[in-house]
Design a protein around this nucleic acid. Structure first.
Lengths: 206, 206
DNA sequence: GTCTATAGACGGATAGAC
DNA sequence: GTCTATCCGTCTATAGAC
């Protein structure tokens, strides 16, 4: 198996310990100090290697950023599918959406995509895939409840869940939490209609 | 942050044409290419001056970023107050929240604040002020409609409006628009209760 | 107020030894 | 695969002439 001079190993994870350490280090730095701090020298230091080795695994920094995004996105889609297979899928999905690290990383990549066009399309593609899967699952839940899609479209629930959870996480990171509980209750009112509880426990005082 | 040696004119706008041009240029570059592209050299070029002059008006780049944020925030609060005084306040507020440029700039500053702590507290303070004003106004509208704050808290409406509009704008920028119309309808259902249309103003309890 | 010149740090990326 | 050494570009910021 001969390797081209310029075509280096920027493929999927699990093949090289160093490569995986680099991806992990980059994600951590992006989370802690923002994407602008994830320079080749700093990710190398965090991963315990020398800077030039970064370019052995990732010819350009964009390749590294894309690897971080792709592996995070793939892991997230796996988590989504697991959540949708949960006994209380809505509870599990809301919990997944409310993960602070996932949201923060997503924000960093959105900012990055502002001047790295290669990353922008990747984010959009992932966002579409995520929403399609979630919407299909919600549609089934709504259908099982006999809810008319015209009254409450599954895609609207998916979008609304994304909107509320993401913004609440961002504000919480900033230190703003006023009104969050009340807003979550609003979302719960919307979302409770989709939850088929195993024991139909009703604890909502109407 | 270097403190004290040189105290230059980094105060409010309107006093220097060059200073205002710098602030405008910085905002434009942040919008078009992201905050990382708003370097001293590039904002100088866009403003038609030489790089060192940037530091005459703004000792550090953080000072410049803060000026951009402060002036944008102040203008936005003015717009909010005008919208709340509109005959159809909810329509006007929703329109204000849906401004793509305002949202995009806000996102850039949130990303910036990740590793520029001085900016973080400024954003939080502005966010709190904005929400307080909006919530107070919504509370009056809800009260005029005789709606129990326990059923629909004004602060929850304010948060929900922020959540949905901001996320929809961000997704639209990315090229994702599926489900947006349906979600807006959902928000409208929530928000319509607050709108006192001119044709219905004769019905005002309390 | 605006400029030229430049210091000094940091960054991406490559060559080539081992 | 990993290293040392290095090139070259860009950045923030300052000094000082005008």
């Amino acid at each position: 198996m001969t390797e081209g001079v310029r075509r280096r190993r920027i493929d999927g994870g699990g093949e090289s310990e160093t490569r995986d350490a680099l991806v992990r280090a980059t994600a951590q730095i992006m989370l802690e100090e923002g994407y602008a701090a994830a320079t080749s020298r700093r990710v190398a230091a965090r991963a315990g290697i020398r800077p030039p080795l970064v370019h052995y695994y990732f010819p350009t920094m964009d390749d590294l950023y894309l690897a971080v995004f792709r592996e995070g996105a793939e892991a997230n889609l796996k988590r989504l599918k697991a959540a949708l297979a949960d006994q209380q899928p809505m509870r599990a999905v809301l919990q997944l959406h409310s993960d602070p690290k996932g949201t923060a990383l997503q924000m960093e990549f959105m900012a990055l995509s502002n001047h790295r066009k290669a990353i922008r399309s990747e984010i959009a593609a992932y966002g579409l895939r995520f929403r399609e899967i979630e919407t299909a699952a919600f549609a089934m839940l709504l259908g099982a409840r006999g809810i008319d899609p015209h009254d409450l479209p599954a895609v609207a629930v998916s979008v609304a869940v994304t909107c509320v959870t993401r913004t609440l996480v961002m504000e919480t990171e900033l230190g703003i939490t006023g009104g969050h509980d009340q807003t979550r209750r609003l979302l719960d009112d919307l979302v409770r209609q989709l939850e088929l509880r195993p024991s139909q426990t009703d604890h909502s005082p109407d």
